[in-house]
Each structure stands twice: as C-alpha cells, then as structure tokens.
Design a protein around this nucleic acid. Structure first.
Lengths: 289, 289
DNA sequence: AAGTGGTCTAGACCACTTT
DNA sequence: AAGTGGTCTAGACCACTTC
C-alpha cells in the first residue's frame, strides 16, 4: 500500500506524476545525477544533508510503479507491457534502471520476458504457472489435470479462524467452495476454499463448473483477482468419514493436509484453502535450493 | 562437467588459462569491444561469420569458473571470495560482467553478498541455511533444533533403488545412517539416510554423535561434500511398528514421508534420505511464488 | 529492416564496513 | 581514508522475432 518511498535525494514531488526523480533530463550526466537540488545556489553543498530516513533505490521505486500499473489493470494478464525504452522514457530514467526493475518483477513471476518479443504479464492460463500452485505429481507419467467437481459454493460469514487468516473481521462475508479434483479418473484432492466476499461477488457453482481450466485463471479473468504468492502448511492427517467417502478411501487413511493462504498484490490475503491429497499414486513435489 | 562453452566471438583459447576471452585489454574502449578484431581495416564487416554452435554468454562462463573454484576448495565455506574488481582483473572482463555472474551465484545460494564487507561462500553453519533444508516448523514458538540421536551408522552395499537415485551401481558402497531428531524433547523425525560411500570414508556413529550442529555442516567441514540443492517427494503414510515405537506414537498414526535426494556441485547426487515426520505439533512449511 | 530483450563495457557516485 | 558491494547512467553490439 505504500506509495513512492521517500528517498533522500532521488525523490521529491515534482509536477509530473509519472516522473520519479527530479533528475536532470539532459543527455549530459550532470555532476549530481542523484538529486537535482532545488536550491541551485549551492550546487555542491546541498545534497549532503539528510542522511536518508528511508532510502529506496530508484529501480525499486520503478518496480513499485510498474507493479501499480499491473494492479490497476493498465496492463492485463497475457498482455505485453511497454518496452524497456518506452518505460525508461516514461519514468525519465535510464534503460538499465528499468531493466533491473523488470528483472525483479520477472524473478517474482509477475512478468515474463521473451527475447525479441517483449515483456508480458504472466497469467494463470499458462501451463508453467499451474505447476507453481499445484505440486501434486503422479508417480508414473506426466501431470494431468482432471475435471473439478464442485460440491458446494455459498456465501457465509467468516468463522474466526478464517477471518484471522484473511485479515478481515469475524462475520465478514466470504465465499465457501468445496470441490473434488480427479486425476485420471480417481478422486485425488478434496478442497475446501474460502474467498474474500468483497472480491468475488457473483461467483456461483455453475460458473465454476462451466469453467474449463485452472480456478485461478477464472478468478483472474472474471474477478480481477490475481494470486501471486501463497504459503502452505503441510501435515499428515487421517481421513475422517466425510473425506474418506468423497475420496473413495477407507476412513483413517493417511492424507496430506495442505493449508494454503494465497495473496494478491500488496500482499493482501484473498484465499484460504484446505486441501486433502491422496498420496498413494501421487506425491507433493518440492525443491530445496 | 562441461568446461568452457564455445562462444562465437568471446571465446577462443589463448595462453592464459584464467583469461576467458581474447578481448582488447586496453583501457580505451575500442570500436569493437566484442571480439577484438585483429584486422582493423574492415571494422564493420569482420565478426559476422560463425553463427555460434553453442553460444554461452561471458558471465555464464565466469560463473562456471567461479563455481569451479568453489568446488575445488580454492575458496572454502565461510571464506570471502576475491572482490569484484579482483575477479574482473583475473578473468580479464569488466566488473559488470563479474557482477552478473556473482548475482546468479547469490541467487543459487552458493555465495552471499555483504555490503561493505565482501562476498562470502555460504555454509551450512549459518542459521539461514538450516531452514532451507529442514522445513519443519512448530505450531507455537520459534524453530528449535533438538539433539540428534544416531541409532545406527554402517557401510553396506547399495540396494537397487538407492543406487538408482545416487546414480551408482547396485552393490556399490554406501553409508547408511538411522537417527531420531528430538524437537523440544519430543521425538519428531525419524531419518534413514544413505550417503555415497566414496565421499564419506571414516564416518562413524561416534563422529555423528559428537557433532553439535547440523549434519550437513559436518559433511561440509569434515568430508568436503557440500549439499547445494535437493528435491523432495512428500506423502502421507501410516506409521509401522518400528517407526511408531521410535517416535512414540501409535502404529497407524499418519506421518509425513519426505524422500529427499541431495546434490552437490555438478548436480551429482550424494545423499538419499527418507524422513518420517510427526506433524501433530509441527508442520512442513512451504512457499509458492 | 525494425523492434524487442540480452550482453558487455566504462565510469561515476552512493552506502556500508573496517582500518 | 580505503575498500567493499550497490546504484545509475550511456552507449555499443548481439540474438531473436516479426514485418
């Protein structure tokens, strides 16, 4: 939520809302590229003061500006963002600085660079992204996504625990979904999902069932809510009667319990999900590095 | 294992084994910084030939060279590597190119930069690194590492499955370790570990029990084998009688099964590990991004 | 041919740490 | 004060894609 971080010399509100720093726009690199002193009388003495309360490098500020444009939908998922040269001109910084900002956005998987083509906003429609958020891999053969069967989709008031995780108040509106995922015709995942009510008005079981493809792609396309990060807490639990029946296993069968909180821009939590995975013919893949 | 990749213009064997490219070493940036043209008569026409069979950017070659020095132990875990300027002089490239190489090594967690101090080889003695390889977090309180009780440590011939994962032949020598990890005085992890026999001559239960600290730190310090990456396959399983007894749970209790393969330099597997985690008061933490 | 991202260089200055 | 990594710039050229 923080807007432009204050920078000792590089930032100071000037006229243009797009311009980041009041730097000398001339091609000649002046003696003080960082911080155009508004007091031209003492050009050399001015910028030494103020040892910077909250220093933020230029490229971080550019990154924040680009992220803001992503959030507001100026550049939508799947679209190309302006070229590095264009962004450099827009923000009045060098191409190298824009480059470094985009480097970080690419590392965060918010955008993807394609040489010769441009830089594109990532989307949950891509195969690559799917595997980032569903790490269940079959023992044999390639990952394959079966159909999602929605059992339930209703609005209700958030229980205390869910509200806490979503950073809302107990009783605030949430949407609850329950569904079963089949992998090669075997019930493999039972999901219980809570979504921020405010962000998902009009979400129904029909919409979910009609949708072919990842649920997050639907959220992104129809509700303008893009999941960009998640944390998971994984445990082994025993199947209760309900889960056992829905997953066609014996009660007491060990299941992987995956509690996920997903975040959108600004690190705002928008989804809590509790998945129960049958791991007899699949496993949860993780890489440590 | 691949040595210096061939590069169209930037690479060609010259005298110095350290020098990467036969570029003009003069301080004056010549008209052709890429590929010093020996024929100054036709400056624009020369370098177009040879469309590069296996192109590899300079900084990748530098990265490989630095990694080689890490592997051979020229710079040991915990030590500082030469400054960017020194490395630039050594490899006869610009500081910016060295910088980019180190950037990637830092992203891979092979080195860590510390502003004002230098760049240091990472080590498993650091707290930060521990959490990269042991992701079990208590429900309440801070992560705390209890003592490791070694049940067994013996040499044996690799079973087929282990041999396959370690990329050796069935029957080749391996070291097998079994141990229990206590977290705040509760048995929480039961590990069964297989190590490449060739790399761990002289490893005994005594050495393991005397060692205070992470096992990987011992491997790194005493056996020159540094784990830099691992993959894990996670499942939920039921405790058998042996595991139940050692972990003080009822037989049949759901446990997290974590099958890990760890790799050292050159992506060579050196360890296979099967852990059984009690997840009643702890959970496996994972971040998706 | 033109436009995109990717690499490489050189030099300036800043921030941090140690001497 | 000196040395380290961190930021920023400007310009050149390369590789890939599209027109």
């Amino acid at each position: 939520m923080s807007s432009l971080p204050t920078s000792p010399s590089a930032t100071a509100a000037n006229g243009s809302p797009e311009s980041v720093a009041p730097r000398s726009a001339g091609t000649q690199p002046s003696a003080t590229p960082q911080g155009a002193s508004p007091a031209p009388a003492t050009p050399a003495a001015a910028p030494a003061s103020v040892p910077s309360p909250t220093f933020s490098p230029l490229y971080q500020q550019i990154k924040a500006l680009i992220m803001q444009s992503l959030q507001t939908g100026e550049w939508k998922p799947g679209e190309m963002i302006p070229s590095e040269m264009d962004l450099a001109a827009r923000y009045k910084v060098s191409q190298g600085t824009v480059r470094k900002a985009i480097d970080e956005l690419a590392a965060d998987n918010l955008v993807a660079r394609r040489q010769g083509k441009g830089t594109f906003v990532t989307t949950h429609h891509e195969d690559v992204v799917k595997f980032r958020f569903l790490r269940l891999v079959p023992d044999e053969g390639e990952p394959h996504y079966g159909a999602s069967r929605v059992l339930e989709c209703k609005r209700l008031r958030a229980p205390a625990e869910i509200a806490r995780l979503l950073d809302i108040r107990t009783g605030d509106s949430v949407v609850q979904i329950r569904r079963v995922l089949n992998f090669s015709n075997e019930a493999t995942v039972l999901d219980e999902i809570w979504l921020l009510g405010a962000n998902f008005k009009g979400l129904t079981a029909e919409k979910l069932n009609e949708w072919k493809g990842p649920m997050y792609a639907l959220f992104e396309a129809e509700f303008g809510t893009r999941m960009i990060r998640a944390t998971e807490k994984i445990r082994a639990v025993a199947a209760d009667n309900t889960a056992a029946e829905l997953l066609s296993v014996e009660p007491g069968t060990p299941l992987l319990s995956v509690e996920r909180v997903s975040f959108t821009y600004g690190d705002r939590p928008v989804e809590v999900r509790r998945g129960l995975y049958v791991t007899t013919r699949h496993y949860y893949q993780n890489d440590l590095s």
